[in-house]
């Protein structure tokens, strides 16, 4: 039993260090992506199209709804404490700094994380990855790096969309509650918005983008030989992506307030 425990611990440690090494290798290749002559440019374009452009609809609906919910809750709660003017600050904190990046990460993780993990897993099973290696293409440079760059860039763009739609949604509902001018409303938002809020939100998106994409790529490449491993890779990618994003969010928020 002790031997089994020891073997499991060694295996766990080896897997952990492999994952850390894989993470840094993929991130390094992603960072150097634009410096190399790119055969994989099409992979990048397709990734941005799928992750950034095709997710616009779902992102807009969630953002509009979230903005509406915040304004409804805030309008009923804040006046009771005579703090109606805090509405703008709460909108900024929730949409720009906290839920905007996190929900965008969830959308991207659910759509693109699963897609990347299952696509790469399928390619492993059908020996397409080995075929890339056989012609001299490094799967990390050709398949992983453009996906990481594409997902991260798309995350940043989607977060900006999310902010815009979230604030528009809140404005539309605010107008139903009490007549308010567009300029007055967005003037209040602009006054409450600081550079730190913007940087904090974008930084989170950048980190979440890397987490979601590297987790998906790692899980996809971890498929060995059976097609039954492919959906498992998708599930693990999404689960791991959610957990790691929330942990990273907690750490980044903590750093912000320290």
């Amino acid at each position: 039993m002790i031997r089994n425990l020891g073997a499991a611990a060694i295996r766990g440690a080896a897997d952990f260090f492999y994952a850390i090494g894989f993470f840094f290798r993929v991130v390094k290749n992603g960072a150097l992506y634009f410096r190399r002559g790119q055969v994989g440019f099409r992979v990048l374009v397709m990734q941005i199209l799928f992750t950034g452009v095709q997710a616009l609809g779902v992102s807009a609906i969630i953002a509009l709804s979230l903005g509406a919910v915040i304004i409804i809750q805030g309008s009923s709660l804040l006046p009771q404490f005579g703090q109606s003017r805090l509405m703008y600050t709460i909108l900024i904190i929730v949409i720009t700094r906290e839920l905007g990046p996190l929900l965008t990460a969830f959308i991207v993780n659910a759509r693109s994380g699963t897609a990347i993990a299952t696509e790469l897993g399928t390619m492993v099973v059908s020996h397409e990855i080995e075929a890339y290696v056989s012609v001299g293409l490094d799967p990390i440079s050709y398949l992983a790096a453009p996906r990481v760059v594409g997902v991260t860039v798309s995350m940043l763009a989607l977060d900006i969309y999310f902010n815009v739609f979230g604030l528009i949604g809140s404005y539309l509902v605010a107008r139903l509650i009490r007549p308010i001018e567009f300029n007055e409303y967005f003037g209040g938002i602009a006054a409450a918005l600081t550079a730190t809020d913007i940087v904090s939100g974008l930084l989170k998106c950048f980190v979440f983008g890397i987490i979601v994409s590297v987790t998906a790529v790692y899980r996809g490449f971890a498929v060995q030989r059976a097609s039954t491993e492919i959906p498992v890779a998708g599930i693990k990618s999404v689960g791991g992506g959610f957990v790691l994003c929330i942990l990273a969010d907690a750490v980044l928020t903590l750093i912000y307030y320290i």
Binding site: M123, H127, E128, E130, A131, S134, V135, G136
Partner: peptide, 20 residues
């Protein structure tokens, strides 16, 4: 050098492994 080896060699897989 590895790139040269890849250029000078080619592999045909049992299940073709064309990029789908």
């Amino acid at each position: 050098e590895e790139f040269r080896f890849r250029r000078e060699s080619a592999f045909v897989f049992q299940d073709a492994a064309l990029w789908s």
